[in-house]
Design a protein around this nucleic acid. Structure first.
Lengths: 159, 159
DNA sequence: GTCTCGTTACTCGGATATCTGGTGTCCGAGTTTCGAAGG
DNA sequence: CCTTCGAAACTCGGACACCAGATATCCGAGTAACGAGAC
C-alpha cells in the first residue's frame, strides 16, 4: 500500500509552478528533477483533468496553475493522482458469513468499515487543511532563496 | 493505492477468534467466509509473525489470539499485513533539484514530506485508538446473536 | 488397567506460479509561432 | 511598411509495452493425537 510516486512529483511541480506565472512545458518541469518526461506528463494530465492545472498547447505552451496556490489543497493533488477510492474497501465479506443477507451496504453496517472510514476521514481532513501555499510559505521561510533559484533554473532549462 | 484485501480478512478473522477460546485451523476460518484457504493462511502467518496470533501445529491445532482483543488495535493488524512503510515515501526528489545536496534526510527537511507524515500520523492515531474489542462491542450491541452464531457455525464447519 | 511407542493424520510454513495495477514509453492531433511573399 | 498566408515546430493527449507487488496455490517439515501392544 505505497502511495504512487506521481503524488510527490505533482506536489513539487505545483509548488514550482506557483513561483512562476507563465506556462511551463512538461519537458522543462521533468528536467528540473531529472524525471522521465512522458510519465510526468501523464501525472500532469491527471492534474489537468482534476482542474488543478491548465494546459496550453503549441509553442510557448505548457502547464500552469488553474487557480491560486491557496486554493489547492494536498488532498486535491492526492485525489487527482490516486483517484477517489478509499484506502480500505469493504468487499462485503460479511455477505458470505452468517446472518441476514438483505443486500445491505456493508460500507455502512460493517463496524470495521466504519472505523477504517473514520480513520481515513481524519487523514483526509489533515490533507485538506494544508494548501500548496502553506507549504510554499514554509519553504520560503526556511530557504528564502528558493523562489529565485527555481525561476532561474527554469528559465535556464528552457533555454 | 488500495489497501490489501488481507486486512479485511484479518480483521474479521480476529473478531471471530475473539469469540472463541480454542485454536481454529485455517481451513475452517476460510470456509467461514468462503475465502481461498491457502491465501488466508498467508495473512494469518503475517499476523502470527507480528505477535497478534499464536499458531499451534498438529491435530486440533490452528490459530488463536495471542493476547486479549482489548490489546489488539486496528493499527496492529494493518501494520502486520501492510508492513511498516509509510503511505507517502519521499524519494528525495529534491536531491536532484537545485540547492544544497548535503545528504540531508528529506523525510525531515521536505515540507511536503512533513505535511504528509503529519496527516498519516492522524490516520495512525485513529487506528491505534480503536481495538478489536471496541469493534466487537459495537457488533454485539447491534447484533447480539453474532457471538453464538459464529461459535455455532465454526463448530459446524469444523465437523 | 496403565504405560510405551509407533503410526497416522493433521497443522503450519515457506517456496512457487499468475495477474492486476503502477511505471515507463511512444506517436499522433492540434495550435501557436514565425517568416516569407504579396500588396 | 503592413497584411496575409502557409509551413514548421512545439505542445499536449491518449494509446501501447514493461515490471513490481498483490493474489492465489502447492507441497514439505513438524507435531499432537490416537490406537495397538506390552507389562
Amino acid at each position: 500500500m505505497r502511495m504512487s510516486q506521481g503524488v510527490e512529483w505533482a506536489l513539487h511541480t505545483c509548488l514550482n509552478l506557483s513561483w512562476l506565472n507563465t506556462p511551463v512545458p512538461t519537458g522543462t518541469l521533468a528536467a528540473f528533477y531529472e524525471l522521465p518526461p512522458a510519465y510526468l506528463n501523464k501525472q500532469l494530465q491527471a492534474l489537468s483533468r482534476a482542474g488543478i492545472l491548465t494546459s496550453t498547447p503549441g509553442p510557448r505552451g505548457g502547464f500552469h496553475l488553474a487557480r491560486p496556490a491557496e486554493e489547492i489543497t494536498l488532498l486535491d493533488v492526492v485525489t487527482a493522482i490516486e483517484g477517489p477510492d478509499e484506502l480500505f474497501r469493504c468487499d462485503q465479506i460479511l455477505d458470505k458469513g452468517p446472518g441476514e443477507h438483505t443486500g445491505v451496504d456493508y460500507r455502512q453496517s460493517c463496524a470495521f468499515a466504519r472505523a477504517m472510514s473514520g480513520a481515513e476521514l481524519a487523514w483526509r481532513r489533515e490533507l485538506a487543511a494544508r494548501s500548496v501555499a502553506d507549504v510554499r510559505a514554509d519553504v520560503e521561510r526556511a530557504h528564502p532563496e528558493s523562489p529565485a533559484n527555481t525561476r532561474e533554473r527554469i528559465t535556464e532549462l528552457r533555454g
